[in-house]
Structure formats: C-alpha cells, structure tokens
Write a protein that binds this DNA or RNA. Structure first.
Length: 423
RNA sequence: GGAGAGGUGCCGGAGCGGCCGAACGGGGCGGUCUCGAAAACCGUUGUUCCUUUUUGGAACCGGGGGUUCGAAUCCCUCCCUCUCCGCCA
C-alpha cells in the first residue's frame, strides 16, 4: 500500500506505475474520494469539538444541580449530525481503502519498462550448460525409470498437479530442504522459522495476495483460513502491527514450508511433470531492514539464493524483471532461472524482491529510529532460496547418466548418507 | 466440544456513565548530587488523523455494532488468552 499523501502529491508517478505494471485502478477517483474524505473529517471534527465542549458544560451544570435540559436537546441535534457524517465517512473510507489496496507499488528507477517478460533484462549468468553424448531425458521419465517419482498415483490420491516422491526421491527432497536451510542458517546467518501453513485473511491481505489473487488460493471455508502459497505470508506477518527497535534490524529469516497454489487459469501450461504443481516445498528468505539499506540487502538476498544453485552446480541466469512482469507489491525483483537440459529451457527457481515500505505500511510494521526517536516504516524483502520442484527437475535432468541413473551433487551427499548415485 | 475467568499505556496494575489519554508502581529518557557509580530527589515518557506557519482540533482502553446529551465504564457480537472437564495426533 502506498501512502495516501504520497499518492496525492505524486499522482502522475502513481498513474505511470499503474500503467507500466498493467494494473487497473482509477487513481483520479481515488483522489476525488480522498478530497471528499478530508472535507467530511473536518466537518465532523468541528462538530465533535462542539460536542466535547457541551458535554463538559452539561457535566458542570449537573454537578451544581442546575438545569441542563436545554443543552441536552441541543446536543441531540449535534450528535445526530455527527453520526450522519460518520456514516458517510465510513462509506467513503471503505471505498477509498478498496481502491488503495489496488494501487501497485512504484517500480524502482533501475527497473526496465516493458510490457512482458520479453523485456526482462539479463544481468548475469553462471555455469556451463552440460553436454551429453545421448539425448537427455525429461525428469518425468527419469523419475519413473528410477521409481522415485510416481505422478499417476499422486493424481489418483489427490488430483493432477500433485507430487509423490518415493524412496531416494523422497530422501533427495528432504536432503535439499536440509541443505538449503543449513546453508542459510549457518553460513548466511538467517534465523530459522517454522510457521503455520494456514493463515487468516488479514495475513493474506497484509502481504498483498488479497484481494487480487483470492482465486489462486486454497481456502478452508469453514474457518476462513488460507493455505499459504509461500512462507512469505506467515513470516512477513510475524511483526504485523508491531513497532520494532532500530537495533533489532536487520532481521533475517529462513523458512521451509510447503506451498499451495491453485494455479487457476494456467491449465494447459506446463502440464507435464513437476514444473507447475499445486503443492510444493520451498525454502524462503525474508528480511526486515532499514530503508536506507534495502537495495544493498536485495543484492545480498540474490547472492544467497544464487549460492544455492552454485553449490548444486546448476547453471543459471539472473534477470531484472521489467515493470510489466513485476509483481503487484514489488519495487524491484530479480528472477533466478536454472537450466534444465531435459526440457531444454530455463526454469524460474527463485524470485528475490524488494517491497520497500509497501508491505510494511499495509501490514503496520514500524521501527523507532534512533536519530529522532520517531516511528518509521521499515522495508521488507523476500526471495526463494530456493523452490524445490524445479530445482529437483534440474538435478534429475542435468545429473543424469546414459544408463539412466542420477548422480548425487557433491553438496547433497552428506544429506544422502553418502549415496553417490540414484539407480 | 462443555464450564468459568480475563483482555487497559513499554511492563505490572487501578478505574461510582461526565474533570480519564487514563491513578499508582516499575522501566526508559533528561537533570540535580558525585571523582565516578549506586541511592535519593526533580522533570519527562504513546500512536494516528485533520487543519496548519505555529497555535489548535479529533480519535484510539482486543475488533465491530448498539444504548445515552455523554462510554474504558452498560448491552450485543466476534476474536484472542488463561484455568478446569471431555476428546484426540
């Protein structure tokens, strides 16, 4: 959420952001409502002041056993006007808030302007694409041959778009989770969080999934709880409506969770294998930082996510997302795309975003600054470090051998009881 | 799921329906004292919004609604916490 005052004073900038991000909000209507709102507040507050003055007068008269009936009558009128004003004010506020929640964050100056992913800017790449003296298989074949992935039975049990790992496949999944958590906790200094996987509506609204993406979420209707689409939601909401101390910052959290996405509207896209699934594992990194450091922190964050891929020996590229591809709440975002040789393409395994104070304002997280002891919104960032299924795809496909086995990446061996090869 | 208790400021903890943004205690900050520190004493200590040059004004005692001229204080409702009973991984 943007500051209303900011929108008022920088309406052109906001309109441009709305356009560049391909969002649909009527900023002028919002501004009109804001003006109306302030007028009403002024009116109501004048009356409330009157009310307070009269209340005191009545209290005084009553104490001195004097007649106050005339004033009471007058007050009735005033109170009535106040409640009418408050009522329309409430309506306006609701409408205003509704619009305000639809205004996207402003892209950072370093973000390329463009309509879609074709305008994303490649920043760098790492690693050599592996070469084979045979036709590399796609991961679903490998998984089937080795008996470590059973998609048909997953579909029987739950439906299409669900995964079932077996034996060493399940172990590899667990190995990846532990490897990533250990890396971020021990080496990069993040604090590990194991949060709830179901969250309430306020949390979902706070991080910006609602109201826009309700259709993409799994909702347990009886309790109005949502299955989390990412650990970002519970972890960022940890400090909702709280005031932190400057010395608390930065806070760095690493969190493994399952993630649940309905993927509504993506039918027919990436249907084979496990590129796009309804439930997947992910290790997420979340940062709460001082505003002046947030762009440096974004670089650190990307660096930490990249290290996962480097250590796993997976070639990847980093892209600076253009305005049209940037998510609603982000000011800047880097995508990490790892190479999957069986599929013959890059797969997005991580998104690292700086939300500046957009989420913090929406969610009410401030910190008290040392310099003037005033509360200020902090900046939030998050990034996958990294998402598992696509990483698993890359490992299976890039580490496959001619005879159909899969070599275990060096860094995962300690997590696989020293197993060298899945066969 | 059943029965009860409770949610007040940074924390503890008061609060006959009007002078309560809130007693009192603790903590924090500033000062006096001291070579320094402790103790003692004095002072100070929230957020948001409107107006704005300041002055000023409004709102907030878990959330929402209601009663009343007036509500932290009464009523309804939701949420949360705690205790006991039952059930259960």
């Amino acid at each position: 959420m943007l500051d209303l005052r900011f929108i008022r004073e920088n309406s052109d900038l906001v309109k441009e952001a709305v356009k560049n991000k391909g969002e649909d909000v009527n900023v002028d209507e919002l501004l009109k409502l804001d003006e109306k709102r302030r007028k009403l507040i002024s009116q109501a507050e004048k009356l409330k002041h009157q009310k307070n003055v009269f209340s005191e007068k009545i209290a005084g008269l009553k104490m001195n056993k004097k007649d106050f009936q005339a004033d009471v009558e007058k007050m009735k009128e005033v109170s009535k006007s106040i409640s009418e004003l408050d009522k329309s004010l409430k309506q306006i506020n609701e409408k205003l808030n509704e619009l305000l929640l639809k205004v996207p964050n402003i892209p950072h100056a370093s973000v390329p302007v463009g309509a879609d992913e074709s305008c994303n800017l490649e920043i760098r790449s790492w690693g050599e694409l592996p070469r084979f003296d045979f036709e590399p298989r796609p991961h679903w074949e490998i998984g089937k041959i080795l008996g470590i992935l059973d998609l048909p039975r997953a579909a029987k049990v739950s439906g299409s778009g669900f995964l079932m790992f077996l034996g060493l496949g399940a172990k590899l999944e667990r190995a990846l989770i532990n490897f990533m958590l250990d890396l971020h906790v021990k080496k990069h200094g993040y604090k590990e969080i194991f949060p709830p996987f179901l969250v309430n509506r306020s949390s979902m609204t706070g991080t910006g999934q609602l109201p826009k993406l309700e259709e993409d979420m799994y909702l347990t209707e009886k309790d109005d709880l949502f299955l989390i689409p990412t650990a970002e939601v519970p972890v960022t909401n940890i400090y909702r409506d709280e005031m932190l101390k400057e010395d608390d910052l930065p806070l760095n959290f690493a969190s493994y969770t399952a993630c649940f996405r309905r993927e509504a509207g993506t039918y027919g896209k990436d249907t084979r294998g496990m590129i796009r699934v309804h439930q997947f594992d992910k290790v997420e990194l979340v940062k709460f930082v001082k505003p002046e450091n947030s762009y440096q922190e974004l670089e650190n964050l990307v660096d930490h996510a990249e290290e996962v891929l480097k250590l796993l020996g997976l070639p990847y590229r980093v892209r600076n997302l253009c305005t049209g591809d940037l998510s609603f709440a982000a000011a800047k975002c880097y995508d990490l795309e790892a190479w999957a040789c069986g599929l013959g393409k890059h797969l997005e395994v991580s998104s690292c975003s700086n939300f500046e104070d957009f989420q913090a304002r929406r969610i009410g997280i401030k910190y008290r600054t040392k310099k003037n002891n005033k509360p200020e919104f902090l900046h939030t960032l998050n990034g996958s470090g990294v998402a598992l299924p696509r990483t698993m795809i890359c490992i299976l496909e890039n580490y496959q051998t001619k005879k159909g086995t899969v070599k275990v990446p060096e860094v995962l061996k300690p997590y696989m009881d020293g197993i060298e090869e899945i066969e």
